[in-house]
């Protein structure tokens, strides 16, 4: 019990559990392991997690379930479509850049 309280205190001191328990209130427990003290909160589903269940991705804590959902989230567009769009957009911008470069240059030269 003392070890769990110590772990909870350590987690709070690191700012991982933002809501410090009131005196006498039950310490936060891992949603998947009731015997373990809370270590972090999943930023997607707000579940309290122990050190084993919490995974940090891109600087944010997630639970396994939410992370799996992110991993299996259907892609809205295939990579080929992305390539086609980027190439077409770059080519269009390239063409426009030449035109606009001349246009603005002529405009600025005319101001002299």
């Amino acid at each position: 019990m003392a070890a769990e309280e110590y772990a909870g205190e350590a987690a709070r001191s690191r700012g991982l559990l933002h809501s410090a328990p009131m005196p006498g209130a039950a310490p936060q427990r891992c949603a998947y392991h009731a015997e373990r003290a809370g270590f972090a909160i999943c930023m997607s589903c707000r579940t309290t997690l122990c050190q084993e269940c919490a995974t940090q991705w891109d600087g944010i804590w997630h639970c396994t379930a939410c992370l799996a959902k992110k991993g299996t989230a259907p892609r809205t567009r295939s990579p080929i479509a992305g390539w086609v769009v980027v190439t077409a957009a770059s080519a269009a911008l390239f063409y426009c850049s030449i035109r606009v470069m001349v246009w603005s240059g002529v405009l600025l030269a005319g101001l002299r």
Binding site: F94, I98, R99, M101, G105, V106, G110
Partner: peptide
């Protein structure tokens, strides 16, 4: 080239476009 041409630059569109293409 633009500074050379000055206000006449608009008459040399094709030439300036080829210079701009090379630059791009």
């Amino acid at each position: 080239r633009l500074l050379d041409l000055g206000s006449d630059a608009s008459r040399y569109g094709t030439y300036l476009r080829s210079a701009a293409l090379m630059a791009m």
